[in-house]
Simulated scan of single mutants.
Amino acid sequence: MPETAKKRPEFRNLNVFSDLPTYRWPLAALVSGMHRISGLLIFLLLPFIIWMFDTSVSSELSFNRFTSVFSEGAGFVPGWFIKLVVLALIWAYLQHFIAGVRHIYFDITHMTTKSRGRRTAAATLILAFGLTAILGAKLFGLY
């Protein structure tokens, strides 16, 4: 008798604590979820973004204060932590933008297939993380 294939589990009602740690997300679903997370991160850090923009363009004195925050810190927050927050914002912006272009492309062309979704999801992740690494290296003074 031929050996039967192992039955894959069906996930109908996902339990966050027992099912999600073992659930295998397809790459396209992972990129879609990261698009939502990056949008939330941008929204939550919007006051910080506005402060950075305002401080950097108000005057030469405020720009000097803005740049010193990255090396000396601000109050009790060290400079390296502010750089990490800015790095997270860089990733969030790039991920959200590239994934958004991907979603718009599929909405306009209606050329959605499983293989194309997987390829564009992989390209989105590679572009977002690659550009984040390059800009993060610049942020941390590696070049």
Rank of each mutant, 00 (worst) to 15 (best):
T67V: 14
P47A: 03
L127T: 11
L142P: 06
V69D: 10
R118W: 07
L131T: 01
A74H: 10
I134N: 09
V57D: 14
L41Y: 04
F76N: 14
L45T: 01
I134T: 11
A29N: 14
V16S: 12
A128E: 03
L46R: 06
L44F: 13
T113N: 08
R116K: 15
K114A: 13
P78R: 07
A123E: 11
H96Q: 01
E3G: 02
L41D: 01
L127F: 12
F66I: 11
L84P: 00
L127R: 06
F129C: 09
D19Y: 09
V69G: 03
L46I: 10
T22L: 12
F106V: 07
L125V: 08
L125R: 03
A92E: 02
A99S: 13
V86T: 09
V86I: 11
A5R: 03
L135D: 05
K83M: 08
Y93D: 00
R118Y: 09
L41Q: 02
S68K: 14
I108W: 02
S56L: 14
S58Y: 14
A128W: 00
A29R: 15
P9F: 03
F66W: 15
F48Y: 12
R119I: 13
M34A: 10
R12W: 02
F140Y: 12
A28L: 05
L40F: 14
L27H: 10
T112A: 09
F81N: 06
S59R: 13
T109A: 04
L20G: 11
L46E: 08
L142K: 13
T22P: 04
F11C: 07
T4F: 04
N13Y: 07
I98T: 03
L30H: 02
F76K: 13
M52F: 10
H103E: 03
Y23M: 10
L87A: 11
F43Q: 01
P78C: 10
D19E: 12
E3R: 04
H110C: 01
H96A: 00
F97Q: 01
H110F: 07
G73D: 09
E60D: 15
L44H: 03
F53D: 07
V57W: 14
N64K: 15
A121Y: 04
R119G: 07
N15Y: 03
L142T: 08
L45C: 10
I98Q: 04
H103W: 00
E72R: 15
